[in-house]
């Protein structure tokens, strides 16, 4: 007999000018099916108007971040039967402007990252544009930042962070983690100036180590660790 799970999906249509509501759908589930598969089933068979963003379906692209039963998850990385619930509440991420249903506008995340210059910078402009040599690193140098390169910019940490929720100007776990990632990279030449980017009220000092970012990160990036290491640098 096919097992059914009830999906309660947050539906929001900006053109209606009303608050969002939860629509419920019965979805047949079999072993191995992810929450994203469930949402695609709803879109194909029950309600084609459901808006959901996804791409790779294998936790690489970071498009399908959402809140499942009150916790931020990648829909494609979450097994329905693994949740062990008869009801699954699917909501969009918090702390981002909501566009429609489960689709949020990721601009705040990308803008904050951009403002912090989270890319490798060489002092020599010619070298920056047209590198002439290879920049070799030891295993040890790589180990200092490798973990933080696993970030797929899904925004789950940004959504889970209690400080971003209450104080929107906070740079957020993802951006601060990125700053540490480049600060710790031996090829980068900005050095301690990177710390000065985040040594301000909206920066590293607003982190209170609630750990929610690391708790929800689907790639094990541990932004909370990066922020504490960055703060240690700021305290030096």
């Amino acid at each position: 007999m096919t097992e059914y799970v009830k999906f309660l999906v947050y539906r929001y249509r900006p053109e209606d000018g009303k608050k969002g509501v939860y629509a419920d759908y019965d979805v047949p589930v079999k072993k191995g099916m992810t929450v994203l598969d469930g949402l695609i089933y709803i879109k194909e068979n029950l309600d084609p108007t459901l808006s959901v963003r996804f791409s790779c379906r294998m936790a690489i692209c970071g498009s399908c971040g959402m809140r499942v039963n009150g916790l931020e998850m990648l829909a494609c990385h979450t097994q329905i039967l693994g949740l062990r619930r008869k009801h699954i509440i699917v909501e969009p991420m918090r702390n981002f402007p909501l566009l429609r249903d489960l689709v949020t506008d990721m601009t705040p995340l990308f803008m904050k990252q951009k403002a912090l210059k989270t890319w490798l910078i060489r002092r020599d402009e010619l070298e920056q544009e047209n590198p002439t040599i290879q920049y070799l690193q030891s295993e040890e140098e790589l180990g200092k930042y490798l973990q933080f390169t696993y970030c797929i910019q899904c925004g789950l940490c940004y959504s889970a962070c209690p400080v971003v929720s209450t104080f929107p100007a906070f740079l957020g776990p993802q951006s601060l983690m990125k700053v540490y990632r480049y600060f710790a990279d031996s090829r980068d030449e900005v050095g301690r100036e990177r710390v000065s980017f985040v040594d301000k009220f909206e920066g590293v000092w607003r982190c209170h180590f609630a750990g929610s970012c690391s708790a929800v990160c689907p790639k094990g990036v541990d932004p909370a660790l990066a922020i504490q290491l960055l703060r240690r640098e700021a305290l030096k």
Binding site: G70, A210, G211
Partner: peptide, 9 residues
Amino acid sequence: RYGLERWSF
């Protein structure tokens, strides 16, 4: 449901 650190916060 974020775990112990959130309770600490």
